[in-house]
Amino acid sequence: MSVHTLIDLLEQLDTVHHHMLDLAAEKKKVIIANEVESLIKIMNQEAKLVKQIEILEQKRAVSAQQYLRERGIKSELNLNLTELSRLVFDVEEKKRLLAIQEKLSETLQKLKRANELNQKLIEQSLSFIDLSLDILVGRPNQDVTYHHPADRSGNMARSGLFDSRA
């Protein structure tokens, strides 16, 4: 086995992560449009891609271990790509390995930023829903007017149908 198998697996990982990045962009649109059904479909697609990534990651780890054994290294260390590239002596293979490492790293950073943005959008949507519920259901009277702390005779019941802050 050569380093080509490892490079091919890394390229496949990059491709799947690009699909995740595309889904993240779609997810952003449906979050903004408040399309819950579409969001669920996207999340199901993401789950399938995550399974693919897990399988490719396992294959990558096995491939890296095989490469190390073929080089006479019996260690079971889980080396990262930079460390592994130090054991690749063919200049072209090393360049390809480092290039795909950089490409995959950039893709992962983009995906991380997209996921962080989507998380913030979801948090904002939930805050808006909570505020809307508070406006619709109404706040309890004690939140609006002053009551002396010793005065327990004030109405403690919420005036709405349910406590949205629970």
Rank of each mutant, 00 (worst) to 15 (best):
R60I: 12
K29Y: 02
E35G: 00
E26R: 14
L79V: 09
E37Y: 08
E83F: 08
Q65Y: 15
Q12S: 12
V16Q: 05
S38V: 08
K27H: 04
N44G: 02
E54V: 00
L104F: 07
K112A: 07
L21C: 04
T82L: 08
K95H: 11
E92A: 13
I55F: 12
D14H: 06
K27L: 00
L39K: 07
E46R: 11
N80K: 01
Y67M: 09
I40T: 07
E92C: 02
G72A: 05
M20I: 04
V3E: 03
E92W: 00
N34C: 01
H4I: 10
E83S: 09
S75N: 04
Q45Y: 10
N34Q: 13
V30A: 03
A61W: 04
T82C: 04
H17L: 08
K94A: 10
L108H: 04
D14Y: 00
A61K: 02
V3I: 14
E46L: 00
K48S: 06
Q101A: 03
L111G: 09
L23V: 05
K59L: 15
L68Q: 11
T5M: 07
I7C: 10
D90N: 12
L104A: 08
L56I: 08
K51P: 01
K112H: 11
I31V: 07
V88Y: 03
L49G: 09
E93S: 14
D8V: 12
T107A: 12
K112W: 03
L81Y: 06
L9F: 08
N78Y: 14
K27Q: 04
E102R: 13
D90A: 11
L81P: 02
V62P: 00
T15E: 12
Q65D: 11
S38E: 13
I42H: 10
Q45I: 00
E83K: 01
K29N: 05
K28F: 00
M20K: 13
S85V: 03
K48E: 14
H18E: 13
E37V: 12
L98R: 15
T107G: 04
A24W: 02
L77N: 04
V16C: 06
M43H: 15
R69T: 09
K41H: 10
L87Y: 13
N34Y: 03
Y67F: 15
N34G: 03
N80D: 15
Q101M: 06
V3F: 02
R60E: 09
T82S: 09
N34A: 09
V3G: 03
L68W: 14
L111M: 08
L10T: 03
T15R: 09
R86A: 13
K94R: 14
H19W: 03
F89H: 06
E106H: 05
I31G: 02
I73C: 06
N34T: 08
A64G: 08
Q12T: 07
L6D: 03
K59F: 14
Q66F: 15
E93I: 06
A64R: 05
G72R: 00
L6W: 01
K41R: 13
K74H: 14
Q12D: 09
H17W: 00
V30G: 04
Q66K: 07
Y67R: 02
